[in-house]
Nucleic acid binder design. Sequence first.
DNA 1: TTATAAAATTAGAATCATTCTAAAATTAAA
DNA 2: TTTAATTTTAGAATGATTCTAATTTTATAA
Lengths: 139, 139
Amino acid sequence: MNNINSLKLEIQNKKIKPSLIRIKIYEFLKNTKEHPDAEIIYQKLKKEIPTLSRASVYNALKLFVEKGIIKEIKIEKDLIRYDGDILRHAHFKCKKCGILIDIEIKEKNYELMIKNKNIKILEEQIYLFGLCDKCNKKS
Amino acid sequence: MNNINSLKLEIQNKKIKPSLIRIKIYEFLKNTKEHPDAEIIYQKLKKEIPTLSRASVYNALKLFVEKGIIKEIKIEKDLIRYDGDILRHAHFKCKKCGILIDIEIKEKNYELMIKNKNIKILEEQIYLFGLCDKCNKKS
DNA sequence: TTATAAAATTAGAATCATTCTAAAATTAAA
DNA sequence: TTTAATTTTAGAATGATTCTAATTTTATAA
């Protein structure tokens, strides 16, 4: 799972040309649960691809988000983090230590009451803030 | 409701010194459903208070958020909008026309399943994206 | 192949909301 | 008052992201 060839196919299925840079960025996102930002991806891949530029990272991430194969996480004040897991889930950030954790959503019980029935919801982003296990025990 | 004196009291109850600028900013947020950003608040109040600086607006907004009397809405790519309504609700943004709409949450049916039971959730931000009534009918 | 067009990549400049800084003004305390 | 503490201010600094224009790579056609 998540080998280069299957990742390449996933990209191609979305009509994205599978350049080396794009495959590498996508691979990186698919194999981490750290929800990295553009700079972290850039620094990591620069070791493998010394000519890599930040612009290419930003370009690829933007394209991936548009095509729906990754998700933006806008939980930080000043930067965007990225998630290779596009299955429905919420994100929790500890107010004390800053750790970012995936939160499973109980599908059945989650319902929003839309007064205006004609609104069509295509996407959702759920951010939770509080105290993680460790920080909660300490306090 | 929402007269100067009651707003002043609300601010004071949160141990915030009720300077004119703070009262005016709080009043503005309490009397609009537009979810303005700092710049809009600045431009609007500058007419009344010509000496007003952007820094004061940012300072007051930051303080209000910390004290919990207003909420940040981080639904735009590049700026923060503010909400004087701190009652629990989600925000919907139309992908076509960009309109921002409050969405009531059906309390009973909204449940998150937290695997790690020790996580303590103190705050939530729910953002929805899609097509508003008008844009949905057109397409 | 070779020529040509299209797309991807690059380095670095530009953008722009927000934060920072240090001074001035205001308010509170003694 | 006098002094201290807080608030406000203008403008500089910050920093993630976007833009630009040139270069490189890839695809297409003859």
